[in-house]
Amino acid sequence: MEKLGENVVILDGKNIFKSFFQGKKEIPVLKGASLHVARGETLAIIGKSGSGKSTLLSLLSGVDRPNPGQLNFLGKDFTTLSENEISELRASKMGIIFQQFFLIPHLTALENIQLPLQINGKGSQLEEAQLWLEKVGLADRGNHFPDQLSGGEKQRVAIARALVHSPDLILADEPSGSLDEKTGNEIMDLIFQLVSEKMKGIILVTHDKELAARCDRILNLENGVLVS
């Protein structure tokens, strides 16, 4: 893996292009965006609404593929991996935090947190999950279903779920976007604290400049490219 200074680069994207078709019309969204993230580094990506942030995230998470572009994650070229291989990589090495929380509605808070561990076939799932429930301050809400939790509580569960399996990279899409200011700040404090503790890389997508300023680096997504 590439090293940047003393830090190991875990994600390296070069000249990423992505366009979509509306009927016969091709609409380019990303026009040669490049970025990298090292282990333990926090990177903020800011951009206006419609700038292509969600498209970029979908490529970085392996849900979609660039056309063309190079995207290496932990030394593996995403564009050459099969869907199953990407799934495995995502399961074991990535954690995703959505703006809309996206908890599994039919699983309790504890079960939502256990899920990544079960997918990865790791042992001591219950204890580990309980630990993370405590870390996010929801020790007594483990048996509640998502529709019984507040927005802030749901996001805490989502954070725990994203980190429980010790991924190398977190993708966080406006994690406080659906929350009030106070709760949002609490959530962000939690994220930064946990990421720092565990030396994870994080790509934080936000339109909030104040929030972005808390990260090690900021990239602006403008006109389909990422600029410092």
Binding site: N84, I96, P116
Partner: peptide, 11 residues
């Protein structure tokens, strides 16, 4: 839920 399962790594 099933989209999330796939996103979380279930094949």
């Amino acid at each position: 839920s099933f989209y999330l399962f796939r996103l979380l790594g279930l094949n």
